[in-house]
């Protein structure tokens, strides 16, 4: 009896979890001119509508550019740090790890608000560069986490053997360490990309005609109009995320990701 009630509860739980998502996916295929569920018929008109509405397309391009650059910058900064921190098991190294992960604990709106004033003060202001910098602050911890997790599982003996055999630091990194930690880098990069692509609380502080990211444009659109194009965009975004998740699962393992997330 208890077991049956528990199963029933879990089923209800997932109905609650999936309801708003399924509804939006279905509405994105509606033939109607308004957002309502259930839908009167199926069509792809709202996906075409996205391409015909320039602000969406521009914002999508901006979002992809920012996400790619912030991810590359996060990797360049976080990978060397991760390599050092996994091998240094001293008290202050733990402190540095905590510091490098701390952007995850600070509310994004605080990061966005304070960065706007600071970056304006040092002359970067509302710009594409500012978006990349602030997104990197938010993305760097994800790369650090996954790379650290994978590198910790690599026995130090491999790197020591390469060094004994005469490889320099760079050669050891390129020939031995890099191939071994590649899954961690890939998973971290995917997380970082998705985090940046979905970010709203930082991006809206840096919004302008040239720097509006997709979530910012979607937010301002949803405040004025309530049509299914937002659903179509959300479905595309979900599709992108699912592809990334499946890719990360193939190269990294989904269980490790839940620990890392």
């Amino acid at each position: 009896m208890g077991g049956f009630l528990l199963s029933l509860f879990v089923v209800a739980f997932f109905a609650f979890m999936l309801a708003p998502i399924v509804v939006v996916v279905v509405i994105s295929f509606t033939s109607a001119g308004y957002a309502a569920f259930p839908i009167p018929g199926w069509s792809l008109r709202w996906f075409y509508r996205i391409w015909e509405y320039p602000p969406f397309v521009d914002a999508m391009i901006t979002s992809v550019q920012v996400a790619v650059l912030a991810t590359v910058l996060s990797c360049v900064l976080a990978i060397p740090a991760a390599l050092y921190l996994t091998r240094a098991r001293s008290g202050w190294a733990d402190g540095v790890t905590t510091f490098l992960l701390s952007p995850l604990s600070v509310p994004m709106i605080v990061i966005g608000f304070s960065s706007l004033f600071f970056l304006t003060w040092i002359g970067i202001g509302i710009s594409f560069t500012a978006l990349v910098i602030t997104h990197t602050v938010a993305c760097l911890p994800y790369v650090l986490r996954t790379v650290t997790a994978v590198h910790r599982a690599v026995p130090p003996a491999y790197e020591e053997a390469a060094a004994i055999l005469g490889a320099g630091r760079w050669a050891t990194f390129r020939e031995v360490t890099l191939p071994l930690i590649r899954p961690g880098i890939a998973a971290g990069a995917l997380f970082s990309f998705l985090t940046s692509f979905d970010n709203l609380p930082i991006s809206f502080f840096f919004g302008s005609a040239q720097t509006n990211t997709l979530p910012v444009v979607m937010l301002s659109y949803i405040e004025n109009q309530f049509d299914p194009s937002i659903a179509a965009l959300s479905t595309l975004q979900l599709l992108l995320a699912v592809i990334c998740l499946l890719a990360a699962d193939r190269i990294y393992g989904i269980e490790k990701m839940t620990v890392a997330a």
Binding site: F14, M17, L18, A19, P20, I21, V23, V24, A35, L194, D198, L200, P215, M218, L219, I222, I230, A231, S234, Q237, L238, A241, V242, C244, L245, I254, M257, T258, A261
Partner: peptide, 16 residues
């Protein structure tokens, strides 16, 4: 099913 919602944007869920 637990991770899938984490991948959807807040705007999507709110719209839902």
């Amino acid at each position: 099913l637990l991770i899938a919602p984490l991948l959807t944007s807040i705007i999507m869920r709110t719209f839902g």
